[in-house]
Amino acid sequence: MARSVLALVLAGSLLGLVAAAPQPSFAAGEHETPAPPRQKWSFSGPFGKFDRAQLQRGLKVYREVCAVCHGLKYVAFRNLADLGYSEAQVKAIAAEYKIKDGPNDQGEMFERPGRPADYFPTPWANENAARVQYNGVPPDMSVLAKARGYERGFPWFIFDMFTQFQEHGVDYIHALMVGYKEKPPAGFTLPQGASYNEYFPGHAIAMPPPLSDKRVDYTDGSPATTDQYAKDVSAFMMWAAEPHMEARKRIGFQVMIFLLVFAGLLYFATKKVWADAH
């Protein structure tokens, strides 16, 4: 007993020392970056599915707004069939793009209308050209929804494992779209050509506010608001980053059921086998 007390005291004093260690300061200046607010997404959770109408609206926002600067190079026009478009519609969308091809028989590069097998063209020739044109390199949007996120911190990151929360990226992108402030807070010096965004790390973002109310015409009666555009384009980006998510979750459920039944059978088999041990 005395020994266990000794062990506990030793351990306790050690852990006490750790706890008493001065807490590091997280403040990176006075302008904290708040956590992006949680949004409701149709694709969250074990049975989540993309909302096809939302993806189509998101595509519209991408094509009319984002595509001016951002590429989508891993997405082919044929992939748009996933959004609920017919073969003819996919062909029509592809044909609206000019694709550089070649060399032809004369050894020359040429432009032709896009085909379903083509990928979304990036709006700039190379990164240096982009830097001149946009004051930075606009990131390709294909995997951006998985390439962005924010720290959940203890203990939330542990709960996320069980609640399957993994929409950090889309929550952040939505927050970023709606997080622009016309004027930076007092005392914040904004670099030339940058905009102030509440959610962007460091707050000075090279991208000017991309969305504004009524900027994109919605034909399905959805509200033409910045918030709605932001949600739709974020959902679209999630699809672009993880196009097989629905199949993944569907197969996952089947696998879980199979494994549960299999584990149950093996449990009873184990009991039966061990009952025979003498």
Binding site: P46, D160, M161, Q164, Q166, R248, K249, I251, G252, F253, V255, M256, L259
Partner: peptide
């Protein structure tokens, strides 16, 4: 499987 299919 939980990790692979739900939180990969």
């Amino acid at each position: 499987a939980w990790f692979v299919f739900y939180v990969p």
